[in-house]
Design a protein around this nucleic acid. Structure first.
Lengths: 345, 345
DNA sequence: CTGAAAGCGCTTACAG
DNA sequence: CTGAAAGCGCTTACAG
């Protein structure tokens, strides 16, 4: 199972009767240097005959590159599968492939694990750059990377120097809320993750803006933070605790994720509330189960692949010291109306 | 955003007053060589002070390694999300991390794309080894890799020289079929992917074995090949076409994947058949939507993370020329009973 | 027990 | 237009 011997640049040079420098120049199309058409075609022919391709590690070593982009992704076995990251990988791969880079998954269990991973990525130069997800306020990941390893964040940050690609969370939440308002709802709960996450903050702002524009009162009591970050269980507990402490029940709920939304549906069923009649539910992410759960879930689709495609494209420019025009990109979202919001009656 | 200067082994050697060879030996704990405790601790101290960690590419280049494992994974934007691969990545990461390797996703669109990717992986040594999925008869991927790049296959193969880790498809399908037989079913349809895939072949065998042991007749007409490989649509079309051409309808269906099973449920609903009363349905994979669809899907869970964990572990031994005891490992599966099979009434 | 040196396979100034 | 040489940062025989 050991690898066979492969031709090196020296073999090609020898067989073509030129120097290794010439072979390298031909193969890399370096404009720095002009090669006669005759020499060029001879080199190309020999290279082809020998099946020669430059070793990636050798090139990388020489140029101080790994040709690897790292995706820092949470990967706990017990966590609900997130199609978001599957799509994210897909988008990253597409952008990387176009420029000859590869994608490596930097999986971590928790925040500390992520930090030590990034530390390692910096000190050992495991990758040429990193894509980060889910930025928070005073995000300690940034200080590890800043000045040491190029990175692009999926989401929004405070720091204008940081390159980001974000979906338009403000607009998305505003649209979803307006959709519910249009359906006649006045008391709309909002199930969110901690507001230290910019995503949560922005969606809350969009939610409030929609209420304000409709002249509806914003009620602090209709906000509830899911205790387990994302997940069906967390959504279940969140909406139940809200129901218990509130005098007048909400007639609709906007949840920051489909898993949270699903938890709300299950809690409603248990309380004898029908979805969407007694409680309209809208989620985020258009997860794999969303079209198939009962009732099918109205949700805001995030284009994770597009998001990450642009992020990796940006990152590769940073790595190659190209001029990167906008430091922050925004990708729109899409409201997918199904039955759980009650619009399809 | 450029990286700052990092200490090299030479810096450490100079500051510790030793040679680079000594620093390397200390840091790598090479037993080949004995270092005085005093020298060792001095080197360690200096290395720590300078925050020195050997550059991964430099080490790799020297040793002819990339420290990268490639996962050859299908990645079409329009394909249903497969939690299988998400779990697979998770398992690969775990095994790789334990031995200091990284995981790179080799994403491809179709078979040809995969072949050229593997070709590139070989000629440019993009990775040290590859994990392959979904083996077929006369699988052309093997000839590209054999003798050129170590690889382990998730699934079964004909070639005894190839290292494999497989879930027990025969037993899984047998158990699922027996479960349906136990529920009183005699006409059980089997929706499968092309039988050139060993997974399909083995499951068909398990299905037949269960029928035989229960003295039920095997009816060729109850077999149907999904035309679009996997996917809800494919399952939908498959079961409908079977229903049309068969004189007596099946009362149950075993589908090779949850997406296919879901398609069967939707087709049944359209035909006015109730699941599970008129048609019991069992799938494979325990997908994200399976607990949440209507009715919740009975399914055979595949432990993709375990499967790939062992595969990567095996692969790393092959790469490091360690003795690899068994060349083929089998991981059990688990039948998860929900409502779609009718056992929960 | 430790050091000096070779060399992994490339690319890139530098000569000519 | 092309070649000879340096060197990226390590590890590993080889001396001593």
């Amino acid at each position: 199972m050991k690898s066979g011997k492969v031709a090196t640049i020296r073999d090609v040079a020898k067989m073509a009767g030129v120097s290794v420098a010439t072979v390298s120049s031909v193969l890399n199309n370096s404009k720095r240097i002009r090669i006669s058409a005759e020499t060029r075609s001879r080199v190309l022919k020999v290279a082809k005959e020998l099946g020669y391709r430059p070793l990636r590690v050798a090139q990388g070593f020489r140029k101080g590159l790994t040709y690897l982009i790292g995706l820092a992704i949470p990967l706990q076995p017990d966590t609900p599968i997130s199609p978001f990251f599957y799509e994210a990988v897909s988008g990253a791969l597409k952008a990387a492939k176009e420029k000859g880079w590869m994608v490596s998954i930097l999986g971590f269990k928790d925040r500390n694990d992520e930090l030590s991973l990034l530390q390692k990525a910096v000190s050992q130069r495991l990758v040429d750059g990193v894509i980060l997800f889910d930025p928070q306020e005073r995000d300690s990941r940034f200080s590890i990377l800043k000045g040491n390893l190029p990175f692009v964040v999926i989401g929004r940050t405070d720091d204008p120097e940081i390159y980001t690609v974000d979906n338009d969370n403000f607009e998305a939440a505003k649209l979803a809320t307006q959709h519910l308002i249009g359906l006649g709802h006045k008391r709309i709960a909002f199930v969110h993750v901690p507001l230290s996450y910019f995503t949560a903050k922005d969606r809350l702002d969009g939610y409030r803006q929609a209420l304000a524009e409709a002249n509806l009162m914003f009620c602090e009591e209709l906000l509830v933070e899911a205790d387990g970050y994302y997940g069906v269980e967390a959504g279940y507990r969140a909406i139940l605790s809200l129901m218990e402490r509130v005098k007048e029940r909400p007639t609709a709920v906007l949840a920051m994720d489909d898993t949270l939304a699903l938890g709300c549906i299950q809690a409603a069923a248990e309380k004898g509330l029908k979805v969407p009649d007694d409680l309209a539910v809208v989620g985020f992410n258009d997860s794999a189960f969303s079209p198939h759960c009962e009732p099918p879930l109205t949700t805001v689709r995030i284009f994770a692949d597009t998001l990450v495609y642009y992020a990796v494209d940006m990152l590769l420019r940073l790595i190659q010291d190209e001029v990167v025009a906008p430091s922050r990109l925004t990708v729109p979202t899409q409201l997918i109306v199904r039955k759980s919001c009650g619009a399809m009656r």
